[in-house]
Design a protein around this nucleic acid. Structure first.
Lengths: 199, 199
DNA sequence: AACAAAAACTAATAAGCGTTAGTTTTGTGG
DNA sequence: CCACAAAACTAACGCTTATTAGTTTTTGTT
């Protein structure tokens, strides 16, 4: 029988990357354990064993997704830290980046947020350490703001938890992605998280 | 061979409820698809087929967990609505209830938040409708606050999204559950969400 | 003590899983 | 146009899955 098709690869992306992209979409919709390699293959238009010409294993797909996302966040945070911006300015910039990541790389961010538990050691431990390090840096920024008297004397860890949780919730914004909406979303959420709800 | 043991049932709870409780713990840790009936049975101290003397199927366990949580939240919201409390007072009360549910029924709330996607119709549709109805009621409360001039003219849907997401984030508070910590958590998060971070 | 119901057990089912082996087709450069 | 490599295919493996059937043990009541 003839080939069902070939793996379509977008401009300057490897076939492996095309598979990872599709996997991210399915893992988001049905979860890592809930997605089979046969489903993934079918969504690409290929038989399951053909995937193994390009990837090593199913779990490797999850590793790629999780660490790509983690690295992007960490990289942006490093850049933000090195700028000579006010504490509030830094926080605004970070929240804005989270929102943009949620819009532009929705599947990947969602999977990294929800399916990292399925990682196996040593990747699981690595991932958690990286997350912890990210949170610590955020907490330090809030502490700096408290020290310089631009932020209320709130519990820094809880504040960071609240902010990170709030931006994670954009998962539910799903549907509409036009730029107008995104800008309004950014504006409202940043204002809510920094200035509160009460008049 | 003799029985491994019998299902231990806590005071005035059926064996089915004991199974559901254990399932909630495992589903939280490993996900619905990632948890096998054999694992569940083993954690109870019984062989897998024995479970079917008390439950109908694996998916039925998930249904029970998801709808129990959804009903509890909806019930509390109804009670809050009917009180003659200020808008801000209502919001405080709702946030507080979410935090308490997260502490007292952590496994169940977590599973309802993460694994509802694995429900099959008609349960999936029912669940989503119930969620939508809950959010709508919250949005109406915020709108009421804007109308009576006690809440800023913020986008109500985004405000509700931010609040719900923030309390969901308590999933990560996991570890410590002593009452002292919980009270401080409540105080800080409510203050942050209502009054903001900026001094 | 005997009987009935509840709840455990063992054994087995069909289906689905990730993955490997081996083969055939496809695409490419000399 | 031929040869070589890349990438698809089919077939199958060993394992796990949820669930059913049939049997034995436990429990509770008369």
């Amino acid at each position: 029988m003839v080939c069902m098709s070939k793996i379509v690869v977008s401009a300057n992306g490897s076939k492996k990357e095309a598979i990872i992209k599709k996997a991210a979409g399915l893992f988001r919709q049905k979860g890592f354990a809930g997605t089979s390699m046969r489903e993934l293959a079918e969504s690409i238009g290929v038989e399951a064993p053909s995937l193994y010409n390009h990837i090593g294993s199913k779990i490797e797909l999850l590793q790629n997704i999780c660490f790509k996302v983690a690295n992007e966040f960490m990289l942006h945070l490093h850049e933000t830290e090195q700028q000579s911006n006010s504490t509030i300015g830094k926080l605004k910039q970070i929240i804005q980046f989270h929102i943009q990541m949620m819009v532009n790389e929705y599947d990947e961010v969602f999977v990294a947020n929800h399916e990292w538990k399925q990682l196996k050691d040593p990747y699981l431990t690595d991932f958690l350490l990286q997350r912890k390090a990210y949170e610590k840096k955020l907490i330090d920024i809030v502490k700096e703001g408290i020290k310089t008297n631009t932020i209320k004397n709130i519990h820094p860890q809880i504040a960071v938890l609240t902010i990170l949780s709030a931006v994670r919730g954009l998962e539910f914004w799903q549907g509409q992605k036009n730029q107008m909406e995104v800008l309004e979303l950014e504006k409202n959420m940043i204002d809510h998280l920094l200035n509160g709800l009460v008049k």
